[in-house]
């Protein structure tokens, strides 16, 4: 007979473990499905120059506003540019932006949040008030201000979004740090005479990563959407360069007679979002092996 905890009927316990196994299988499926989707989009974008696509910036007024067909899988826009080629090339800007911004923010926020939660006191108060300030401010306005100071273009978008999104990671990490701060292995690291940086970065941080990594997956999507919003407002990517948000914005004036210009890039954003979310879901389960 398999051992099961006291106080639970055996069949209930078997049902529970069966349930856990099913959950675990779903998490694995979700992880690999997410990786497949993201890898597909990223692979296409990375290989864009070698796929024999049309020039994403070449205008061809003779073929303007063509609906999707074999020649133009996603149709053409009002300047006759091939939307499929533009969507694929745009992935290079958007995915790189989403991933770089998210992980730079994660590293900054993780370090600051860990220090804040570990040391507490005045350091904690000061850092957390700054975090509150950043989070409570309408973020798009803050990003707009920073982007406007740095100047329109991709650099401004990078700096602006990172300047805002580290704060969420800092708050998340601080909370997790407060929770493990009193765990015995952290106290033990202190009584073993380890230096504070060693306790924080070698012993505490690896145990704080899970929540951050899971959150980062949905954050990548949010950051791509933010870039889209910035481009829409004219502060992100300059017009001829293809970018998903900019394409949606451009298609807006023809939404009623050429739905594909805005809709198809939008669906690609949705697909990428689903891919990253599935990875996040799968990771949440996969990384849950702390202690117990």
């Amino acid at each position: 007979m398999r051992p099961f905890p006291p106080g639970i009927e055996e069949d209930a316990w078997l049902r529970l473990t069966k349930r856990a196994r099913l959950d675990r299988r779903w998490a694995t499926i979700s992880l690999y499905a997410g990786i497949a989707i993201v890898a597909f989009i990223a692979g296409l974008s990375a290989a864009a120059p070698f796929l024999g696509l049309k020039d994403p910036t070449a205008t061809d007024l003779m073929n303007a506003l063509q609906p999707p067909s074999l020649a133009f899988p996603f149709g053409t826009d009002d300047l006759g540019r091939d939307i499929f080629a533009r969507v694929v090339y745009a992935g290079r800007v958007d995915l790189v932006f989403g991933i770089v911004v998210t992980y730079v923010s994660l590293v900054i926020g993780l370090s600051i949040g860990a220090i804040s939660g570990y040391f507490g006191g005045l350091i904690d108060t000061v850092i957390m008030r700054i975090v509150d300030l950043v989070i409570s401010f309408p973020f798009i306005i803050l990003i707009l201000t920073i982007a406007a100071i740095v100047g329109p273009g991709l650099t401004g978008a990078y700096i602006g979004v990172i300047a805002v999104s580290w704060a969420l990671y800092a708050r998340l990490t601080r909370g997790e740090m407060l929770a493990i701060r009193r765990r015995e292995f952290i106290l033990n690291a202190e009584t073993l005479g380890y230096s504070a940086p060693r306790v924080v970065f070698v012993h505490a941080l690896p145990n704080l990563l899970r929540a951050n990594l899971v959150f980062s997956m949905s954050d990548i999507v949010l950051n791509i959407l933010t870039l889209a919003a910035l481009s829409y407002l004219g502060l992100g990517v300059a017009p001829p360069t293809p970018e998903w948000g900019e394409m949606i914005a451009q298609g807006q004036k023809n939404l009623f007679n050429a739905w594909w210009i805005s809709t198809l890039p939008g669906l690609v954003i949705v697909l990428a979002g689903i891919g990253f979310s599935l990875i996040g879901d799968g990771l949440a389960d996969r990384l849950d092996e702390s202690g117990r």
Binding site: R183, E184, F185, N188, A189, T191, L192, G193, N207, E289
Partner: peptide
């Protein structure tokens, strides 16, 4: 002093870093 004074805790599940 830290080297010479070592402590062992009650909870053997909490005293070790789960990721090491």
């Amino acid at each position: 002093i830290r080297k010479d004074l070592q402590m062992i805790y009650q909870d053997p599940y909490g005293a070790l870093n789960p990721r090491m």
